[in-house]
Design a protein around this nucleic acid. Structure first.
Lengths: 278, 278
DNA sequence: CTTGACTCTATTGCTGCAAGAGGGTCTATA
DNA sequence: TATAGACCCTCTTGCAGCAATAGAGTCAAG
């Protein structure tokens, strides 16, 4: 009894009956005999050899179409070519997944940050480590034009990043700057927008925000920014601090839990300071 | 002009119009207004915020369905759960790809081996490094029953491997053994089948074939094995070699370039030997 | 002859769109 | 105001590799 029914063949090879029918249909593995009346498929035990090859190639991720090609070409050079190309595509996919992983981790970090942050309105004085940023200048001061302008500037930022080859994964939790002088003169003027990147990111267009003490206000609504900046001024004055750098509006967390369509963000408004020597 | 047509929205966000329509249909991102007569969709610039979130989540590989869930649940705990599960699934996928990579590399090595091997029938005396194998014993001597029995034994081997947790990637280029005594007595008796594994593979059921000089015959057809073993006997006798271990039939390469349905293999028949001291 | 296990073909579903068909709509210019 | 060209609409199909049906025929044993 050398002829096997499709079910027997399937069980022997730990494969589904549907898969075998598909391979037949695609012409990858034809049964040695088909009863013309009933349409029943019968396989030869020897075909397990070919089936093993199919399975092995499938386990490498090679598509059925390519497997079919390989069997039809009967050409070792072609096979070698396919294998080498496939190896490249696997490496590509792995890199892709590593990027995904990084993106997920960034989200998780961002949410942990949110959970552990102080309440809206809290003022702190904290040491912040140095940060690497990619920043982009614009013509528009979005404090003058509101959310629409901001959206447009964000889009420009993304385009810039793409041009400079900064991976999209860093397009997350953007920040904006008011230069030190403008901040001190209470001019709400911002033409700079940036994203934080990490150590892995290399590009000649990156800048460093040096480590320093920062006076900070936590804020849960973009619309409260101006109002909370006033809090910063007051705090600085009361504590006799000296502003020594640009003001930054940092997005700590952006929530996908929005009722309105608008961005819902958790911010840390901050400005680097030093102390009056007594 | 705060209302954007679908095309403007698409261009602004570097996304396709179809994608936007899909998100609408799925209820992930609905336009703020739909003209009931024409069906034209109109978006608000503010919705770019939500779209950015969608894109970012998509870039992590989270499915649209899950993204929808997250938006609908409005629940941070749920989000955190999804993110952590997704992180796990990414790691799983990466491991999967690493296995695929290993499988492709094995195939490539195997074909290089084939290309660089001597002709069918060539006899050699070579030093072979130690090899790690997973072997499985059977009741059946397949030299008595031919290809059918061999196929069955192979299937048993695969099952064994699965039970022991040996990855499927090693189910490739199997080998068979004739024990030393049987070989010397010219009894073709094989109850052992095995696969080669590499350093990465850990299991308590692995054995080592120690490094040694081997007398070998290259062979391009399974059916010629017995005939070629005779060549080995002759060679050993002529050169006054002493057999010091089990005979092995090693599959170097299995070709997916088969006209017949049968396995087409390139073999290296081998037996470890030492030299008569003069 | 019946029963249960097996087989057949054919269809749908999964994911995230892309591409195209066949048709209406908007806007600016001649 | 007619018309062209760019835009928009709602379908449907396709992709990969099967799984999971449905509805009907077939096989082997009791």
């Amino acid at each position: 009894m050398s002829k096997l029914s499709i079910g027997q063949m399937a069980k022997l090879n730990q494969i589904s009956v549907q898969a075998l029918r598909l391979y037949d249909e695609m012409g990858i593995l034809k049964p040695i005999e088909v009863n013309p009346e009933t349409g029943y498929r019968y396989y030869d035990v020897k075909q397990c050899g070919k089936l093993d090859m199919i399975r092995y190639m499938k386990s490498t991720g090679i598509s059925l179409k390519e497997i079919k090609d390989i069997f039809e070409h009967r050409d070792i050079t072609k096979l070698n070519l396919v294998l080498h190309e496939h190896l490249k595509s696997i490496d590509h996919d792995i890199q892709e997944l590593e990027l995904q992983k990084k993106a997920v981790k960034k989200m998780i970090d961002s949410y942990n940050r949110y959970l552990k942050s102080p309440q809206d309105g809290t003022i702190t004085l904290e040491y912040i480590e140095d940060r690497k940023i990619y920043s982009s200048m614009t013509d528009i001061n979005f404090y003058d034009y509101g959310i629409e302008a901001y959206e447009n500037i964000l889009k420009d930022l993304r385009q810039d990043m793409e041009k400079q080859g900064i991976p999209e994964v860093y397009y997350y939790n953007a920040g904006t700057t008011i230069f030190q002088d403008d901040f001190l003169n209470k001019k709400y003027l911002s033409n700079e927008i940036f994203v934080f990147v990490d150590q892995d990111c290399v590009s000649s267009f990156l800048q460093i925000l040096p480590a320093n003490m920062y006076a900070c206000v936590y804020c849960d609504d973009f619309d409260k920014e101006k109002q909370y900046i006033v809090k910063l001024y007051d705090y600085i004055e009361q504590n006799q601090l000296i502003v020594i750098g640009d003001y930054i509006c940092e997005v700590l967390t952006e929530l996908p839990i929005t009722k309105t369509n608008k961005r819902e963000m958790f911010l840390r408004l901050q400005v680097p300071v030093t102390f009056v020597k007594k």
